[in-house]
C-alpha cells in the first residue's frame, strides 16, 4: 500500500494528467452538447501539456533562459518539452476555433447543438 502511495506521490503530475485525460475523454464521448465536447477536447489537451511539461522538469534546476551563469548544462531544465507544448497549444487553438466555427454553422441551420436533437432533425430531413 505504501509502495503504491509512494509511486503516486513520485509521479503526481503524471497521475493528475492521466485523470484529467480520462475525464476529458469520457466527457467527449458522453456529452450530448457539442460545445461541451469542445471543452472536453481542451481538457484533454491540457492533460497532455501537463504530462509533457512535467517530464522535462529536473529537481533544483531553473528555466532554460541563460543568465550570468553561462551555458552550464546541469543548471537548466530540459527545453524540448517546452517547445513541444508550444506546438501543441497552437494546434489545439486552431482545432478549437475550427470546430467552434462548424458548431456555429450547425446552430444557424438547425437551431440546436444537442446531438440527439440533431440526429432526429437530420433523419427527418432525409425521409
Amino acid at each position: 500500500m505504501t509502495g503504491l502511495i509512494n509511486a503516486i506521490i513520485d509521479n503526481r503530475y503524471a497521475v493528475t494528467a492521466v485523470l484529467l485525460f480520462v475525464i476529458g475523454l469520457a466527457n467527449m464521448l458522453l456529452q450530448p452538447n457539442l460545445i461541451k465536447k469542445v471543452v472536453a477536447f481542451n481538457i484533454m489537451d491540457s492533460a497532455t501539456f501537463l504530462m509533457l511539461a512535467s517530464r522535462g522538469f529536473v529537481e533544483g534546476r531553473v528555466a532554460a533562459v541563460l543568465t550570468d551563469g553561462g551555458a552550464d548544462v546541469s543548471r537548466y531544465v530540459n527545453p524540448i518539452p517546452a517547445g513541444l507544448v508550444l506546438t501543441g497549444i497552437v494546434v489545439s487553438v486552431s482545432v478549437s476555433a475550427f470546430s467552434l466555427a462548424l458548431i456555429q454553422r450547425i446552430y444557424a441551420r438547425y437551431g440546436t447543438v444537442e446531438l440527439g436533437e440533431l440526429l432526429k432533425l437530420t433523419k427527418k430531413e432525409k425521409v
Binding site: 492521466v18 517530464r55 529536473v58
Partner: peptide, 16 residues
C-alpha cells in the same frame, strides 16, 4: 504506466 515512470524531477528521466 504512470506508476512505472521515473519519478517527477529525477535526473534519470529518459527525456533528459
Amino acid at each position: 504506466v504512470a506508476a512505472a515512470l521515473p519519478g517527477f524531477g529525477s535526473e534519470e528521466n529518459p527525456t533528459v
